[in-house]
């Protein structure tokens, strides 16, 4: 049984190692100093407190979207809508934050609260469409990403835009040099959103594994027909899973905007929502393991950024690593023979 338990972590580790080896081969092709480049990618973030701070700063939104997507994937709902919800809820948080500028803690609390609720309602739309009419949630969620971006960008350009700024940006919602979510660790930009995301992940874990709703959710994901015949109301499971995921993604958008910026600055979808899918997958759709996955991905991303700044290899290189990790981890047959051997050995 012990070997069986450690199988999954080993498999994940092997997948990551293979991906890194392939990444190294690619670097070998494009870089003059492949070993130096690879070293920067792998240990670059450890070199300065500021870089480590960057890792945690990036971890926060990735953890939000990762936990949100873990709910959906756990129920076998392939919805990638966290991206659009993150964006539009960032806009909503900005609107409120501008209105409540100078109200201190109240500003952040109200902005995050309202954005989360809006995220929940918007996230529920594909859920109801799926539950009621079995409309493909993947396609709908992707269409909604573009729709939410279009509407959000329209609001930004027409109602929030500070025309004194050369780049796309909203009006300021905090005084210069301050951030709405404060500073948690001196010397970095880590903000109180970190504590919030840890609480959200913990509550998600409790919900998913210690309540009957979480049980229904997991059963629906494991086998929705079986769950249905067992008497689980799969209709409501699909809807509340979407509502929760939307709530968390919306909160993530608000926290990211208020925690990291003094103005809303996203002129395009930031991609953090799509990364949530990868985080959820790496974390095996488990809220706490998703935290580890988010930390890993954030580390890799910051490593890639440092690499792109100091070498000629672009940070998009990371896309290759990600694709290989997804393919290998989702592959049931990957290392299956090895596992079968282990099982046989134990039986003897």
């Amino acid at each position: 049984m012990n070997n069986y338990k450690i199988f999954e972590p080993i498999r994940t580790a092997v997948a990551i190692i293979i991906a890194l080896i392939i990444a190294f081969i690619v670097i070998l092709l494009v870089s003059d100093d492949p070993i130096g480049t690879m070293t920067i990618l792998l240990v670059g973030p450890l070199k300065a407190t500021r870089y480590l701070g960057n890792v945690i700063e990036l971890f926060i939104p990735l953890a939000f979207t990762g936990v949100a997507t873990a709910f959906l994937f756990r129920a076998k709902l392939f919805n990638l809508g966290a991206e659009g919800i993150l964006y539009i809820c960032g806009i909503i948080a900005t609107v409120i934050a501008i209105k409540l500028k100078g109200y201190g803690i109240l500003q952040a609390v109200v902005a995050i609260g309202v954005a989360s609720v809006v995220g929940m309602l918007l996230g529920g739309i594909p859920g109801i469409l799926k539950a009621k009419w079995n409309i493909n949630e993947l396609v709908v969620s992707l269409m909604f990403n573009s729709i939410f971006f279009g509407i959000g960008f329209y609001i930004l350009n027409n109602y929030l835009r500070d025309t004194d700024q050369s780049l796309v940006a909203s009006y300021r919602f905090v005084e210069p040099g301050k951030l709405a979510l404060g500073n948690l660790v001196a010397g970095t930009r880590i903000h109180y959103g970190l504590i919030l995301v840890l609480i959200v992940a913990l509550l998600s874990y409790v919900f998913m594994f210690k309540t009957k709703w979480g049980y229904a959710l997991r059963m629906t994901g494991a086998n929705n027909r079986f769950a249905y015949y067992m008497g689980i109301k799969t209709f409501s499971v699909i809807v509340y899973t979407h509502l929760i995921a939307g709530f968390i993604a919306g909160m993530g958008g608000a926290v990211e905007v208020l925690g990291m910026y003094d103005r809303f600055r996203w002129g395009a979808l930031p991609g953090l929502g799509f990364d949530g899918a990868l985080v959820a997958l790496l974390g095996k759709d488990h809220p706490l393991k998703a935290l580890l996955a988010a930390l890993f991905l954030a580390y890799l991303r910051i490593g890639a950024d440092i690499m792109a700044r100091s070498t000629e290899v672009p940070s998009e290189m990371i896309a290759i690593i990600q694709a290989i990790i997804i393919l290998l981890i989702s592959a049931e047959r990957f290392l299956a023979k090895w596992r079968e051997k282990q099982l046989v050995k134990e039986a003897k």
Binding site: M317, I320, A323
Partner: peptide
């Protein structure tokens, strides 16, 4: 995901 980053790469 691969194509989006890989094509830019």
């Amino acid at each position: 995901l691969f194509a989006s980053g890989g094509s830019v790469f």
